[in-house]
């Protein structure tokens, strides 16, 4: 089963929509609650990252009998140093984003903690692709 969502950079009003839809879908499919919780945390953080940093993005969700693969592809500034970005507390978020309570440098660490497989590819001035796999 495949689901697809568009994300607009800078639009915080819609942040969480894709996560909410995926949560509902996985519940309907009877996926174990703990597993759903992990996926929802990771996907929400990925959504917020696109909204906070990129110009636009796309989420592709592929659900199989034993796993869910989520790909978040954005057009944006890219991440020059992925290892640094993965560090807890490191953030390049704007002041406005931080005032909302985002940008604490916890997003990517939250994604890592809550996925079974995580792959990040990024090109500066082009964009970032995050691929996450969670086994049921």
């Amino acid at each position: 089963m495949n689901l697809e969502f568009e994300i607009a950079g800078g639009d915080f009003t819609k942040a969480g929509y894709a996560s909410s839809q995926v949560k509902k879908m996985l519940k309907q499919l009877g996926v174990e609650a703990h597993c759903i919780k992990n996926i929802v945390i990771a996907l929400y953080e990925a959504e917020v990252n696109v909204v906070a940093h990129a110009y636009e993005g796309q989420i592709l969700v592929h659900i199989e009998s034993d796993k869910i693969t989520t790909k978040i592809i954005d057009k944006g500034p890219g991440i020059p140093d992925i290892e640094q970005a993965m560090q807890e507390g490191y953030s390049t978020a704007s002041k406005k984003v931080r005032e909302m309570g985002f940008g604490a440098g916890m997003g990517l660490p939250n994604i890592k903690k809550n996925t079974d497989k995580l792959q990040i590819q990024s090109k500066v001035d082009e964009g970032t692709t995050v691929e996450m796999v969670n086994y049921f």
Partner: peptide, 15 residues
Amino acid sequence: TLQVHQNVMAIASLK
């Protein structure tokens, strides 16, 4: 919390 914007509810709902 002291956060008052709508993302608070998105999180409250997801969690």
